[in-house]
């Protein structure tokens, strides 16, 4: 087995008396989709925030692309090839759809201390940006102001921005939240197609999506990773069924 792209060991984060992340281990291998599931409040978003560097863990290590990145700030991790989509849409409201995507490309296209050439006429930026918009089905809205997009389109733009760079690993926090059935199905196809070129850590509530996409699943409850394995193992796991998969109604912790 190849070495994991992302390796998390004993990651812990406490907020007051609550173990938001409780000694979590997980691996994402190359070209794999790892889904992290769990009830609301299980600590999934806190986990992603630590992986992306927005939140410092109390203890534990994060290795990415063979490097210890536990202490690196968000921009340095992004530089190493980690892209992130946000659960709550986070885009550049005042800029156009193309500009949003263009910035995501630009982030991976060397330094930006370039003061003269017009960025919007730079094919090295606009072509990959348009390609990413094409992939998510937003190309016809490229010139529109990002503020005016529908909720589903905002989500598509989030994904386009995650795709636009040359990132090895995508951290997707509920990318399908708020999408219609058709958009959501298109996104499932898109993520499946991406698998060959990128590794994905996916947080998702929709079990149909998770079981359709994931190579492996990690289940989190109350900050702990209670199980990890292939989808069929997870489906059969007694603990998981009891804690989460609908045998009993999960409580909102």
């Amino acid at each position: 087995m190849n070495t994991p792209v992302l390796e998390v060991r004993e990651l812990s984060k406490r907020f007051g008396g609550i173990n938001a992340t409780d000694r979590v281990d997980l691996d994402v291998h190359e070209g794999e989709i790892l889904a992290v599931i769990g009830p609301n409040g299980a600590g999934k978003t806190t986990l992603i925030a630590q992986l992306a560097g927005m939140l410092a863990p109390d203890s534990g290590r994060i290795r990415f692309a063979g490097r210890d990145i536990t202490g690196l700030p968000p921009h340095a991790r992004a530089r190493l090839g980690m892209a992130r989509s946000f659960q709550i849409t986070s885009i550049f409201d005042a800029l156009s759809v193309l500009d949003n995507t263009l910035l995501a490309v630009q982030a991976h296209a060397g330094h930006s201390y370039r003061f003269w050439r017009r960025a919007r006429r730079d094919k090295k930026l606009t072509e990959p940006a348009m390609a990413a918009l094409q992939q998510v089905g937003l190309a016809d809205k490229a010139a529109a102001n990002a503020r005016g997009l529908s909720h589903g389109e905002h989500r598509q733009l989030e994904i386009a921005m995650a795709l636009a760079g040359t990132s090895k690993l995508l951290l997707l926090d509920e990318p399908m939240a708020g999408m219609g059935g058709e958009e959501s199905a298109r996104m499932v196809d898109l993520l499946r197609a991406l698998k060959s070129s990128k590794s994905i850590l996916l947080i998702e509530h929709d079990m149909d999506v998770v079981f359709a996409l994931a190579d492996r699943i990690t289940v989190m409850v109350d900050g702990k990773a209670i199980a990890s394995g292939a989808p069929e193992e997870i489906r059969a796991d007694e603990n998981v069924r009891r804690a989460y998969l609908g045998v009993e109604t999960p409580g909102d912790a």
Binding site: H75, A78, I91, A94, L102, S112, R114, L125
Partner: peptide
């Protein structure tokens, strides 16, 4: 309108997003 200006305007609009894209704003 150059790359530098795109970064400046992006950082005004949404700085945390710029950082998560990889810019040292």
């Amino acid at each position: 309108n150059a790359r530098f200006g795109m970064v400046i305007q992006g950082a005004k609009d949404n700085e945390p997003r710029m950082q998560s894209l990889g810019f040292d704003t």
